[in-house]
Computed example of a mutant assay.
Amino acid sequence: MIPFSILDLSPIIEGSSAAESFRNTLDIAQHGERWGYQRYWMAEHHGMPGIASAATSILIAHVAAGTTTIRVGAGGIMLPNHSPLVIAEQFGTLESLYPGRIDLGLGRAPGSDQTTARALRRNLSSDANEFPRDVLELMDYFSAEPRQPVQAVPGKGVDIPIWILGSSLFGAQLAAALGLPYAFASHFAPQQMMHAIQLYRDTFKPSAQLDKPYVMLGFNVFAADTDDEAQFLATSWQQSFVNLRSGRPSRLPPPLRHYLEQLGPSAQDLLQHVLSCSAIGAPDTVAGQLKAFIDKTGADELMITSNMFDHAARLRSYEITAQVRGTL
């Protein structure tokens, strides 16, 4: 029985606010802890009207303060937006406050458009080696004897698991070369999933952090008491995804009956592709789809995301997912 974890972007629904999203985030984390989820991750996105997790390290602190055992972390921090020293200090602080519970996942995408990325850091680099250099610099700040002329305080000597995130072969190669666990964003970009998994496993080099490959895969679950209800609830995320890919990012809209039938062929093809890493339905339906995905990929862990408009329905989806995990 592999671990299940939760990925939460603190979605802002239509007619609501970021403050309400943060209350919901903590509520889901507290329930997830009781239901046996392994970790609770939040992701850095900027300039998105429907995502409230931009200040990711602050939100991690909020969740960690309101829970006791579940691991809390970033899935991920988009390192090109930041100085590695600043991230070392932030996560050194988090680990000092909540020892043994903090994860740090790192991605090389800006988590935004190019205009927003410039506003965040203002010195965008086209050098493909910049991200690996930044990762190594960040890891060095956490070491017991850093080589950097400046020390991360807090940060030096702390034990924080570092993950490499990705949706292409680049992240797989880097994670394997550094001997780090690898999280693939199959929940929204499944195109190269199987190739990336194989490349990572075939080229993995053991490290002080990890002695063998460890693959976490993103997976969408929209679970409810009936298949029909689950299909209906999933349309909020489907609308949001189509809006985003159409250049019209939005707050998470309410579910819409017969939404898929209203779409043109290109939008339907888009959703059909991304839904290849999703389970939608009643408990038995979801259990079958989860088992098929795990058997196909050999995943070591699943990172479950369930963006629904109604908070109670979202909680129920995570509860059902936790319950069916024991049957897989």
Results as ranks from 00 to 15, higher is better:
62 H>G: 08
191 Q>Y: 14
220 N>S: 14
133 R>T: 02
169 L>Q: 13
313 A>D: 14
181 P>I: 09
188 F>W: 15
84 P>V: 00
84 P>F: 09
25 T>Q: 01
258 H>S: 13
177 A>Y: 01
197 I>C: 11
327 T>Q: 13
44 E>A: 07
309 F>N: 06
267 A>S: 15
67 T>C: 11
297 T>N: 03
48 M>I: 02
170 F>C: 01
205 K>G: 00
61 A>I: 03
10 S>P: 00
95 E>Y: 00
100 G>F: 04
244 L>F: 15
72 V>C: 12
17 S>N: 05
89 E>D: 02
112 S>R: 04
317 S>K: 04
259 Y>Q: 07
175 A>T: 00
40 Y>W: 02
192 Q>C: 11
270 L>P: 02
32 G>L: 01
228 D>E: 15
6 I>G: 12
275 L>F: 12
259 Y>I: 11
268 Q>H: 06
250 S>E: 08
49 P>W: 09
204 F>P: 03
228 D>Y: 04
129 N>D: 12
22 F>R: 00
322 A>L: 11
188 F>R: 06
260 L>G: 09
327 T>K: 11
33 E>T: 05
182 Y>H: 07
54 A>G: 13
21 S>I: 10
57 S>Q: 13
55 A>L: 08
200 Y>E: 05
212 K>N: 05
203 T>P: 01
119 A>Q: 14
297 T>H: 11
245 R>H: 14
313 A>P: 02
295 D>N: 14
149 P>C: 01
204 F>L: 06
169 L>H: 03
190 P>T: 04
221 V>M: 10
119 A>K: 10
195 H>P: 04
224 A>R: 02
53 S>A: 13
78 M>L: 15
136 L>R: 15
270 L>E: 11
280 I>D: 02
26 L>Y: 05
275 L>Q: 15
165 L>H: 05
230 A>F: 06
46 H>T: 07
102 I>Y: 04
